[in-house]
């Protein structure tokens, strides 16, 4: 097909769309009069358009508007509580507050570590202890960034099948491209995804890379978000775990065994309201600035049911923090 022919055919297509000026229209009319092949092409192209327009319009179901408004309401709340532009400062405040809180927690830890796991009911709700590694939350960001194979991929993939394995790898690749923030949720709780999304919203994180796999034991998600650049300078990692006690214990130990400093903001089996109250109380007791307290109050602990605990671990791995930890 010559370039001239192609040009004529494009002209015919544009003529059908009414997108030609007077001169162009005259040119096409002349082509159609002179050449039967162009006339046939004209008919066919026009017919194609008619066929597409015959497809009935798709309509949304009733209630979509309200659904959207509910979602925008959540976004508004997140924006008000945690302005994206101030995300780094916010995390900085939280980390600072958390470090102060850690002093209290360290004391509790000092009592509990020598006496193994939850020796007395009074120690429950303080710090979680021994347990088998769950293998999910202890992988370092650099492991992801290197794009290396993680040993648990095969286990997860085995439970998921080939396609999910591909999705998992895809998620890891995507995460590797932007290895900023790792949020791990491992739980068989039905509302895990909602909880994760709400929590991310509160941090101002757009979940730009979520891979959602559901092995038999629970759910895990990998998220890299727009907190990335803001959180990396501190080499901080947030792990939000919403899990059973055993899972939290193992998570805690695994995180603690790493070189970074672990700050546990809250571990609690208390009901939702009391959990929030306690976190706010811890923040208030510390020497944090009023703004910091406000920010800490902005964090949310979600209700997770009577037998489950809500935990927010903040791990910092900057050299400064490591030094201060020694």
């Amino acid at each position: 097909m010559s370039e001239n022919q192609l040009s004529n055919e494009e002209l015919i297509s544009a003529y059908i769309d009414g997108e030609l000026d007077t001169e162009g229209c005259a040119q096409v009319k002349a082509l159609l009069e002179e050449n039967s092949a162009y006339r046939r092409l004209f008919d066919e192209l026009r017919e194609v358009g008619d066929q597409v327009r015959l497809i009935p319009n798709q309509q949304l179901e009733q209630g979509f508007r309200d659904q959207v408004l509910r979602e925008t309401g959540k976004s508004t709340a997140a924006v008000v509580m945690v302005p994206h532009q101030a995300a780094f400062r916010r995390i900085g405040y939280v980390l600072a507050g958390a470090l102060a809180v850690s002093t209290i927690i360290a004391l509790i830890w000092g009592f509990t570590r020598s006496s193994s796991v939850f020796n007395s009911p009074a120690e429950r709700g303080a710090i979680a202890l021994d347990g088998e590694s769950d293998g999910f939350s202890a992988e370092s960001i650099s492991d992801f960034a290197d794009g290396g194979e993680l040993p648990w991929i095969a286990q997860v993939a085995a439970a998921l099948g080939t396609s999910s394995q591909d999705r998992l790898r895809e998620g890891l690749r995507e995460f590797s491209n932007s290895p900023r923030l790792l949020v791990t949720v491992q739980l068989s709780h039905q509302s895990s995804l909602d909880i994760l999304e709400q929590t991310l919203s509160q941090f101002g994180v757009a979940p730009s890379a979520i891979i959602n796999v559901e092995p038999q034991t629970g759910t895990c998600y990998f998220v890299s978000g727009n907190l990335a650049d803001e959180i990396m300078p501190n080499h901080a990692r947030l792990v939000f775990a919403n899990a059973t006690q055993a899972e939290i214990e193992s998570t805690f130990h695994q995180l603690r065994s790493e070189s970074g400093r672990l700050v546990t903001l809250q571990i609690s089996e208390t009901p939702y309201d009391r959990t929030v109250e306690r976190r706010q109380s811890l923040a208030t007791k510390s020497d944090t600035h009023a703004d910091q307290r406000r920010k800490v109050k902005g964090l949310k602990i979600h209700p997770v049911g009577p037998r489950q605990m809500a935990v927010l671990f903040i791990v910092t791995t900057s050299s400064e923090n490591q030094d201060s930890d020694k």
Partner: peptide
């Protein structure tokens, strides 16, 4: 705009469910 956008995204995305998700996310 919801139905107009949905109708278009239905053809672009290829399924009702996907189109609905996209439209909702776009509005948000």
């Amino acid at each position: 705009y919801q139905n107009r956008l949905f109708n278009t995204m239905f053809h672009v995305a290829g399924s009702r469910e996907e189109a609905e998700d996209i439209v909702q996310e776009a509005f948000v």
